[in-house]
């Protein structure tokens, strides 16, 4: 009983001072708000064209590359579904889109703004996708076309980039989604494999460790506290920092023998 009190008397202050420490260490801001990246505050809130005018199309020039014979105008291919299918090959992937001029890229393509280049390296869409018109990725003359992407885009910053390099998925699909299972199965498997490993490991070891801790509370012999208080630290203080032999080790020996006999 005394030991349990001593343990709790020790463990509580330690846990309390640790949590105090957490508040003393820098910037523990719980209510950080929805804005995490300072640069995004502008991108998301301000579409005036002032901060990133280059990301809001001026729409003055015509498409420099065009497929001969493709009709121009609003939604040339009719229904939205066919538009989505076909936009991947357009010289100007935003042709005919309403309100395009007054909107930022991120408002229409929120998912594409979540990659490492955009969030961490603060690289803007246009640094890769270029000026108007933004050709669709698979448009034959697009600098983004995988046949020349490495040379036209990536090597602007990554010196010596190869075709292989441009194979990197800049806008990674959400690794856990079923869609990714079809488009990028290795990523999907790696994601769920690691998640399972993480959850599995913690789901086993956290309760297990807690259970062991709780069980040890019922075992007087398990406590280290009494040893700490009455034991070495205390005695060496008493004996002027000299290491101790003597009655403690005698007691220990007696205990040790007892322990051995028990087996």
């Amino acid at each position: 009983m005394r030991m349990r009190v001593a343990y709790l008397g020790g463990v509580l202050p330690v846990l309390m001072s640790l949590s105090l420490l957490l508040t003393v260490l820098p910037e523990q801001v719980l209510a950080q708000g929805e804005v995490t990246s300072k640069i995004y505050r502008y991108r998301e809130r301000v579409a005036s064209g002032y901060y990133e005018g280059y990301e809001v199309s001026p729409r003055r020039q015509r498409a420099r590359v065009a497929i001969p014979g493709t009709p121009r105008g609003t939604f040339p291919f009719g229904t939205a579904s066919s538009a989505v299918r076909l936009r991947s090959r357009l010289p100007d992937s935003h042709r005919g889109l309403k309100f395009y001029e007054r909107t930022t890229c991120i408002e229409c393509h929120p998912r594409e703004a979540r990659d490492l280049h955009s969030t961490r390296a603060d690289i803007t869409c246009r640094q890769c996708h270029g000026p108007e018109p933004i050709a669709a990725i698979d448009h034959y003359y697009s600098p983004m076309n995988s046949i020349r992407r490495y040379a036209y885009i990536c090597s602007k910053c990554h010196e010596g980039a190869t075709v292989n390099f441009a194979d990197f998925y800049v806008h990674e699909p959400p690794a856990g989604s079923l869609e990714t299972w079809k488009s990028f199965p290795v990523l999907f498997v790696a994601y769920w494999g690691m998640l399972l490993l993480l959850v599995g490991t913690l789901a086993f070891f956290v309760p297990h460790a807690l259970m062991v801790g709780a069980r040890e509370l019922t075992e007087t012999r398990a406590f280290r506290i009494p040893r700490l208080i009455t034991g070495h630290l205390f005695e060496s203080l008493k004996q002027g920092f000299r290491s101790n032999k003597g009655k403690r080790s005698k007691k220990k020996k007696a205990r040790a023998d007892e322990g051995n006999n028990a087996h």
Binding site: L116, E159, Y169, L187, A190
Partner: peptide
């Protein structure tokens, strides 16, 4: 990443980034 992609396709880097973080 550039050296790695001399031998391996670029998408391996997506996997590598995921594994490293996870």
């Amino acid at each position: 990443p550039v050296w790695t992609s001399i031998i391996l396709p670029g998408w391996v880097l997506n996997i590598a980034a995921l594994l490293h973080r996870a």
